[in-house]
Structure formats: structure tokens, C-alpha cells
Nucleic acid binder design. Structure first.
Length: 474
RNA sequence: GGCGGGGUAGCCAAGUGGUAAGGCAGGGGUCUGCAAAACCCUUAUGCGUCGGUUCGAUUCCGACCCUCGCCUCCA
């Protein structure tokens, strides 16, 4: 079975074939967070998607090098540093730490490299210098260095491959006042921004004077430094396709550092945005959620991760609090099944059940059809439960099922609900209830059960005796 | 205005030129002292609207409506 992925640059689903001649090593870069605030659920949809891509490639046996940049210098950050009266590092450090905490809550595998823009100023300057020397970049009257789309095109570069744009029809100036810039052409973009008084201490020396990097250049400089001038996969949110990724291609290929005929990036993947409660997420609508907001409402990281992983990455997704409740119920069914399997399997070990793996892999091979993958998982859960009810679940079969699940979960990253140890007073209540039941004092037994539920513990009476479960609630 | 996605059950969401996966919620049943969990049955003659192509369309084509994204520093 072969993995197929949609490629934004060809607008089609195509087989994934690594650049590595041995077909083993894969370089993956994902545009990471701009650390000016806490990450919201939309940001994390993209990062969960990137995590899925990385994990599935590893599942398929590829040796992945995953890179995610930290954008720690940028207009919004500088503005906030100024109003907060703090230093750049202090300000961004706070949100970077928060980001990694959030990432851990969602069980995102840490990328192998998380380069910060501010720690690669030298690489950025070197890349800009190359572009200047090749005649593709120029310093304008305002002191900033810009990339010339016209020169790039004249040199054979193709601009506008990720997004079909008609530059004559563009509504120029609607979002940025054109008179703010001294660029030769509207479409040119900044590589190096000359220092302004508002930048405060956020400035670096360069051959073109004091200033700071433009936005796009950091990703080109850092990705090529770590993964080489040509690498396999570049991911990001769909909004980044233009201009960010388009400009990355122009800069990176404009530098002429790729081996003959090789592209900067072979495969571009873009994750769709999400809606929240059916509306575009916005603070004024009250449907703007940071990950922290959701965690503080009592939802678990795995529930959020699961919900984000129920929809295909190229479709916009309607994220709702009700959906999160549904996620909790679905995971409870999974947990229930796994607990049963573990109970039956005991210490037996077995090879993974091939049927489950096959359905799962078939689904994800098809451009990461994660909905179909979950369908395979839930069909399997039903089969296991039925076997259990019909008394046909042997320890060997349960062990094989568990082994398959563990393999799947290297991709899904859902894990299992941690078992909480019941406190002594709950155990005492449980024993009291058992006494009452034995004496057929059911009213008393039910009262005790109600008392335990009030304290957050549920009882399930099984043929093997009562089972305690901690109630989850948001 | 240009370009690109979408509109599938109460909600979320796959999918296909041949008669609609899966999850949540709901209804009925089995089991249970009662529950819980689990299982079984059930819930779209229908896939935005109107036309067209076809033996056959939710799937292809056209128009229209609604919605989301991008159109210069937003995941």
C-alpha cells in the first residue's frame, strides 16, 4: 500500500515519494506559532494535522526529521513588547513556554528541531545577501531590502504556483496602505525591514543597516539550513499558501541553491481552517477559544485532539463544545473496550490483528482519510465487544487486538484514560454497598451508589464483581 | 470584483456514475434486584435549489442561493 497525499502545488492527490534515493528519510517542515499570545483552537488544528502527518510517515517506516519554527520577531510581537515594557526574549519566552505546554496537552510529538527566528539572524542575512548578489533583491529608499518579483520572473522563476492569482485584478491597497512602502512594485515583499523608532531594542546589524528580518525569510533560511535546500514536505494553515509560502518558494529557489531541477519543496500540504459553533471564530462572537480556555472548561487534551482528528484536514471543520461532549462519549466507549481487552488478555502477548491494521492503513494512505480510519476503529470496537458478549473473546485474540490498537495509537496519539485510584472512603462506600446488596437491601445499596455518584465515582456491576469508574465531567 | 473550498440525518462527518461509512444524540429491546457497560433493532426513498447529460446522478455539466478561505506579515 502506498501513501497518497494532496499537493497544493499540483492541485492533485499524488503518491508520496521521498527525495531520498533510498526512499527512507523524509524532511518535514511546518510553519509554527508566532509567539505573541496563547494559541487558539484554530492554530492547534493545524498543529494536530502536522502531528498526524509526521506520525503517519513514521508509522509507514520513514525516518522523519520534523522541523517547526518559532516566529519570535514580527510586527505584532514588537508592538506588544513595546506596550508591555518588557524585552523581546522575556515576552516571547512566556508564550513559547505556553505553546509547548499546550502541545504536550494535545500529545503532539515534539519536532526534532524548533528553530527560533531570532537565533538564525545570521542565516537569514546570508540568504538575503545571496538574493541581493543574484540581483533578485534590492534596497529601497526606506532602507529596507525587498524581493523583486519582476526580476525573479525575468530570471525564469515562476511566481504564483500555490494560489492562482491575477495580479491585475488584485485589490491592491485594501489591507496595507501602499504608501507605507518604498517598494518598486506592489507585489514585492520585504526581506529585511529597516529599523524604525518603534522597534526599540528589537534590532540587528546587517549589511543594509540596522533592522530585522521580514516574515517569510525566516522559514526559508531555517528550513533549508536544517533540512537542506530541497526537502519533502512543507505544511501550514491554508491561509499561509499566499503570500507566505509563495514567497518562501521565490526566495528559496531564487537563491539558486538547489541541485539541478530540484524544487525547494516537493510536497505542499495545507490544513483547512475551522469554524467554532458554525461561525468564524472571533472574540466579539464569544466563540474564540484558546486551548487553555477549553482545558479550563474541564475538557481533556485527548478529547480535543480526538475531535480535531475526526475530520479530513482539507475540509473546514465545525468545532463545537457539543462536539467535545460527543468526543468524550466516543472515547469512553474506546476506553471501555480497551479495558475489557486488557482484562481478558492478561499477560498474553500476540502479533497485532492484521484486519484492523489493514482498514486503518487503507484509510490513511488515501490522503489521510482520518474519518475512514476512525470508522475502521469503531467497527473494530463493535466486533470486539460483540465477541466479548458472545463469549468468543479468547486471551490470544484480545492480545492481538490490543497489539493492533497500540500500533494504531502511535499515529492517533489518543492514549488511554489514566486510571485514577479510588480514595479509601470511596472503597469503603463500595464495600458497604456490597454488604447491602448481599442482604438484598437494595434501597440502601442504591442510596450508597447515589452518594458515590455525587462524589464522582460510578459503579458497574459485572459478573466478576463491581467495577469502579471515575466520572468525567466538564 | 478575482481565485479556491464547502453545503450529506437533530448535531459532527466520510463517500461513490448503480442506489448513502463512522461518531454523538434520540427511540425500542436483551442483560441487570434496579442501574451501568455492552449487544441487537431503529433514525436521510435522501445528499443546498432549479435545469441538463445518462438506462441510471448525491456523484458529471450549467445556472442560481447560502457559506468559508485567500487576494501583501492571519493556523
Amino acid at each position: 500500500m502506498a501513501l497518497q497525499l494532496y499537493n497544493t502545488i499540483t492541485r492533485s492527490v499524488e503518491p508520496f515519494v521521498p527525495l531520498d534515493p533510498e526512499g527512507r528519510r523524509v524532511g518535514l517542515y511546518c510553519c509554527g506559532p508566532t509567539v505573541y499570545d496563547f494559541g487558539h483552537i484554530g492554530n492547534f488544528r493545524t498543529f494536530v494535522f502536522a502531528d498526524l502527518v509526521r506520525r503517519y510517515l513514521e508509522f509507514k517506516g520513514y525516518a522523519v526529521t520534523a522541523v517547526m519554527n518559532i516566529t519570535d520577531v514580527e510586527d505584532k510581537i514588537i508592538a506588544r513588547v513595546r506596550t508591555a515594557g518588557t524585552t523581546l526574549r522575556e515576552y516571547t519566552g512566556r508564550y513559547e513556554t505556553a505553546f509547548f505546554e499546550d502541545a504536550r496537552a494535545l500529545n503532539l510529538l515534539p519536532p526534532h528541531h524548533c528553530p527560533r527566528a531570532t537565533e538564525h539572524i545570521g542565516d537569514i542575512i546570508a540568504l538575503i545577501d545571496t538574493l541581493v548578489r543574484r540581483g533578485l533583491a534590492y534596497q529601497a529608499a526606506d532602507g529596507s531590502v525587498y524581493f523583486s518579483i519582476e526580476k525573479y520572473r525575468a530570471a525564469g522563476g515562476r511566481y504564483g504556483r500555490l494560489v492562482n492569482l491575477n495580479f491585475d485584478e488584485m485589490r491592491i491597497g485594501e489591507r496595507v496602505k501602499s504608501d507605507e512602502y518604498a517598494k518598486d512594485a506592489m507585489a514585492d515583499f520585504a526581506l529585511w525591514k529597516a529599523r524604525t523608532p518603534e522597534d526599540g531594542a528589537v534590532t540587528w546589524a546587517s549589511p543594509w543597516g540596522e533592522g530585522r528580518p521580514g516574515w517569510h525569510i525566516e522559514c526559508s533560511a531555517m528550513s533549508m539550513k536544517i533540512l537542506g535546500p530541497s526537502f519533502d514536505l512543507h505544511l501550514g494553515g491554508e491561509d499561509l499558501a499566499f503570500p507566505h509560502h509563495e514567497d518562501e518558494i521565490a526566495q528559496s529557489e531564487g537563491a539558486g541553491v538547489q541541485a539541478g531541477g530540484r524544487p525547494f519543496v516537493k510536497h505542499w500540504l495545507h490544513g483547512a481552517h475551522l469554524l467554532v459553533e458554525g461561525r468564524k471564530m472571533s472574540k466579539s462572537l464569544g466563540n474564540f477559544f484558546t486551548l487553555r480556555d477549553l482545558l479550563s472548561k474541564g475538557f481533556a487534551g485527548r478529547e480535543i485532539r480526538y475531535l480535531l482528528l475526526t475530520a479530513h484536514y482539507r475540509e473546514s471543520f465545525n468545532f463545537t463544545l457539543g462536539g467535545l461532549q460527543g468526543a468524550r462519549a466516543a472515547l469512553a466507549r474506546l476506553d471501555e473496550c480497551l479495558a475489557k481487552l486488557r482484562d481478558v488478555a492478561g499477560a498474553i502477548r500476540a502479533e497485532p490483528d492484521a484486519e484492523l491494521l489493514r482498514g486503518f492503513e487503507l484509510a490513511l494512505d488515501d490522503d489521510l482519510n482520518v474519518s475512514a480510519a476512525w470508522a475502521a476503529v469503531f467497527d473494530w470496537i463493535r466486533r470486539m465487544n460483540r465477541a466479548s458478549t458472545d463469549n468468543e473473546l479468547s486471551p490470544a485474540r484480545a492480545a492481538a487486538a490490543l497489539a493492533a490498537w497500540n500500533r494504531l495509537d502511535t499515529v492517533l496519539g489518543i492514549g488511554e484514560r489514566p486510571d485514577a485510584e479510588a480514595p479509601p472512603e470511596i472503597v469503603a462506600l463500595l464495600e458497604a454497598r456490597q454488604q447491602a446488596r448481599k442482604a438484598r437491601e437494595f434501597q440502601k445499596a442504591d442510596a450508597i451508589r447515589g452518594e458515590m455518584k455525587a462524589r464522582g465515582w460510578l459503579i458497574e456491576d459485572t459478573p466478576k464483581g463491581p467495577r469502579l469508574k471515575q466520572e468525567t465531567q466538564a
